[in-house]
Each structure stands twice: as C-alpha cells, then as structure tokens.
Amino acid sequence: MSDTKAPVFSCPEEQKVFSRVYKYADMATRLMEEFKTPPFPNTYALMYAYAAGENDDIALIVDEMLEKGDLSPYEIDNVYSRHLCPMQDQAKREKIGQRVDEQISSVLDLVGTGVENSDQFENVLKQIGNGIGESTSLDQLSAAITNLMSENQRMANQSRKLNEGLKESREQIELLRRELEDVRNESMRDPLTTVHNRRAFDMKLVAELEVAQKNGSHLCLAIADLDHFKRVNDSFGHRIGDEVLKIFAAIISENIKGQDLVARYGGEEFAIILPATDIQSAAQLIDRIRLQTFQRKLVLKGSKKPLGDVSASFGIAQFVPGMTPADLVELADQRLYLAKSQGRNRVQAEGLKTSAA
C-alpha cells in the first residue's frame, strides 16, 4: 500500500487548480509515452505546454510535429528554445532587473547618508564659527580647534565609507550588466554548435533586408545541408553526429567575416547571411566552405577509423528589391534542392555555374 497522502486543499478553488495541473501533467506524460519522445526536461515542458493549450503557436506547431512524426530531440529543442525559452529569458532578465533596483536603492541610501552628514558638518562649522570672537580665550579657541579636527576626521571617515559603498555598487551594477548581456547572448545561440540560432537568424535577416532595401546594397543568403547526415548518425551514433555538426559550424565560422552571420537553421541545416556581398563573391566564399568540408578527413578517436566522405550542398539566393525574408529563404531553399537533386556536394546559385567536387 502506498504511503502517499492525498494533498489537503484550503479551498475548492485551490483543489480545482491542482486538479488541472495534475491533468496536464498526466496528458504530457502520456503523449511522451505514446510518441516515444526522448524523456528530457525540455520535452516534458513542451508537452505540458501543449496539453495546457494556453499557447496557440505551440499547439499548432506540436500538432504538425505529431502529424509528421517529426519528434527528434533537435526539433523538440528548437521549438522549446523559440517558444518557451523566451519566457525563461524574461524571468532571468526580471531577476537581474530586481537586483539592479536593489543596487540603485543602495546607492540612493548612500547618497542620502552623504547629504545628511554634509548638512551636519555644515551645522557644526557654523556653531564653531559663531563661538569664536574677539573675546575668545586661548582655551576656548583650542577647544574649538579640537572640535573642528574631530568633526573633520568624522567627515573624512564618512566620505571614505561613502566612496567604498559607491565603488562596490558600481562594480555590482557592472557585473549585473554583463550577466544581462550573457543572458541575451545565450538566448541567441545554438547550445550544441555555439553558432547563432533560428531566432537570431530571423532578426538578422529582417534587419539586413531592410538595409539592402533602403540603400540598394547587395545581400545574399546561403542555406547549407550536410549530405547523407542520417547515415552518419545511424552508422556511428548521435554523439559522433554532433561532433560533425560542430566541425561543420566551425568551418563556416572560420570563413565568414564580421558582418556575416551563420545560424543553425534546422537539424543539419545552416543558414549564412552575407550582407554587402554580390552573388559571385558569395558563390566563391561558399564553394571554399564546401571544399574545406569535403577535404576534411574525419576519423574516430581511438580507433582512427575513417568516417568516410563528409560533404554538404549549398543553395544561394540574392536579394532583389521587393523581396520579403520569406521570399529570400524560399529561393535559397530552391537552389539547395537543385544542388541535392544534381548529385550533392555542390553549390547552386542563380545565374552561376554549379560548383562541385
């Protein structure tokens, strides 16, 4: 017999809340069992949010995932990071904001204390000044000087404490500023490859497209897909597959310049935004990445067993005034599909010859 005691509720409303929570938790668990999803915290959080039905976007996306049977760990993490992580990021920012408010309050207290001490010192100086006249004896003058020196020392000590407190608060505020920046950066990065994530890609593409539209400047988008990546996972396991993704992301990152951006776009797909870059230059850059990927001979640590050829296919689209971000992505996708259909390990860009091994 179980020793678990039934919860005691203080009111009927509380009982309703707990009943609803238990219901959603049970639904989330059943969904994970039915669709054999990985039993990770992110999966449970996503399924619970889906069961609760309070977010229309999550409901629509998970419905599509369930229909397609596409419940891979990456896709789950991707949806989680795009739709649930922002809530966690907001909570982190709010917590840091509270700590900033506390530091500001501390600074105001210190300033208030400093003003109070300054007023007190001013009053003492007035009293000493009023007590000194032509008839003041040497003993009285000596006592006034002693009092003045004592007050001056007290004021110096208070000023030192004030400065120390202000310095400490300034250091704390700077630390909080860095923490806030770290939270922001973490929310824009893919945790596996450390390149930017889909959220960062979406924001960057909109911004760069607006610049290109306004200034009439060049803008290219490349979408890359590792060829036969499922074969790597099936043959060597997901851990090795993850290492291949990291290496591919690193090759791209090493070849692009400061204003460019690479993001993990899907499971084994990466998107590269190339501002101020024409189609010819983009194709040369992307083909260099393709070639370096293919020439990198990967072997398993320990056994030195070769992984076999690892290649990638690329599709490049060039911005044309009037295009939307979705138009540019769709065009790059079409070129990628063409590169795949023509044999993989090649670059397809409109108006340019195919580059292949």
Rank of each mutant, 00 (worst) to 15 (best):
I223R: 02
G343C: 06
A51W: 03
V232L: 12
E14N: 11
K36A: 12
G267P: 08
Q153F: 10
E350L: 15
A143P: 00
H238P: 03
S235C: 10
K92F: 05
E208H: 07
C85F: 15
L352F: 04
R177A: 12
K161C: 11
E330Q: 15
I252M: 14
R264M: 02
F121T: 07
P86L: 10
S303L: 08
A349P: 03
K167I: 07
V232S: 09
L300W: 03
V347T: 15
A276M: 07
R20F: 04
S355C: 15
E210M: 08
S118H: 07
E54W: 04
P306T: 09
D333E: 14
I279Q: 04
A276Q: 14
D327S: 08
L219W: 06
A143V: 06
L192K: 08
K167D: 10
S311R: 07
H218I: 00
Q98A: 08
A59Q: 09
I247W: 00
T113S: 14
A312Q: 04
N55Y: 02
M188S: 10
L336W: 02
Q103I: 00
E151R: 12
M47S: 02
A263Y: 02
L176R: 03
V211I: 15
S341W: 00
P191R: 07
M149I: 14
E94R: 14
R93A: 10
M1H: 11
A222H: 06
S10A: 10
E164G: 11
D56M: 06
D260H: 15
A207V: 02
E268V: 09
T194H: 06
E181Y: 04
